[in-house]
Design a protein around this nucleic acid. Structure first.
Lengths: 191, 191
DNA sequence: TAAGTTTCTTTACATATGTAAATGAATGAC
DNA sequence: GTCATTCATTTACATATGTAAAGAAACTTA
């Protein structure tokens, strides 16, 4: 739990008393490689703190095309944030790409604590703001950079990931086909 | 100010007393067409409530390529959100595309009210969450839909905008060239 | 109204990237 | 260790989209 405390505290400091109540909500679980933390179409109820492992969030459209929106490398918060906020079925699934260890909590219980703990509400605000900043960053990258530049950024951001997961997930994260990623990789090796 | 109150209250209800303090922070200003509300490279200090008019947020990269991230059609909150949150110079400028009327407030003063008004902090959280949801929605559209589908969505989302601003802003919003937008428009007319 | 400016469309060509299929390499199961 | 499966690369071809330049249309404004 110490890891969770440190992680949270770095985002927005909370009182020890608040954290005690918070940690009561979390239970440890494990996910095997390829298992899902969030299923497409399900109503999300849980938020997770990924301690070890890699998780991807991905969107599947009607044509069966996948877009790997995001990678999470522990330590990190995970969960179908949009589904939790909107109470609509999740459109974005989350899948373990390696064996994972995490702590999970009921989001509604956590949300209730907001009423009585201003510091926790502030944490919630900071997290939402942080998520927004992350998204905006990626939006700009996608709009203004070529795939080869995005690939280099991705490698810097997730240095450990490349050797641990299949290339086609990375291609999908970059918004390109595996073929194109292969071409980019070759070009980088040549130069 | 009533419009602001209604707008805010629909996101997250706040006490009347809180709103009284809040509204003291806001002053009315006007922007002429093409004037900037936020300049690229400046430190943002103000948040604005756009009452009338259209504003675009756009990013300019080193190669001089523009990406019109977003349109705001009043009533709407505007401001260099990222710069306000990070206290870094704004990378995203905001420019009036029509004559505009707005209310502006000092963001730091508003932020201070968070400490003493839990309901305002909650509003801040809801707004951040809402921004996140919006971004995620656009991310998915950009990743999985063709430009012609995105164009149709854009027209539905901003029905009034198309006749009021140049096409090349819309092209930039869609992430395509004006040439390509023109081709898409022709194809839609033909079918 | 006329001239000048801005914007939109069109054309021709170049390029990035996609799809499908074949091959080769790596990985995992037994 | 062998076989089967999964994954990565390559090739050939198709397509979407970009760039540049020219012409047409739509607006400003004097």
């Amino acid at each position: 739990m110490l890891e969770l405390f440190n992680y949270i505290n770095a985002i927005s400091p909370i009182k020890e008393k608040t954290f005690v109540e918070l940690q009561n909500l979390f239970k440890p679980i494990k996910l095997k490689k390829n298992e899902f933390f969030v299923d497409d179409g399900s109503y999300a109820n849980e938020i997770g703190f990924l301690q070890k492992g890699i998780v991807r969030a991905f969107f599947l459209n009607e044509e069966g095309k996948e877009y790997s929106k995001q990678f999470f490398v522990g330590p990190s918060l995970i969960g179908a944030y949009t589904s939790l906020l909107t109470r609509q079925p999740a459109k974005i699934a989350q899948q373990a790409l390696t064996d994972c260890e995490l702590l999970v909590a009921d989001y509604r219980a956590l949300e209730k604590l907001y009423d009585t703990h201003h510091d926790l509400e502030r944490l919630g605000r900071k997290i939402a703001e942080y998520y927004f900043l992350e998204k905006e960053q990626k939006e700009i990258e996608m709009a203004l950079l070529d795939a080869d530049k995005r690939y280099l950024i991705m490698r810097k951001k997730f240095p450990a990931i490349e050797s641990q997961i299949p290339q086609y997930y990375i291609a999908s994260y970059l918004g390109i086909s595996p073929t194109q990623l292969s071409r980019i990789r070759r070009k980088l090796l040549e130069s």
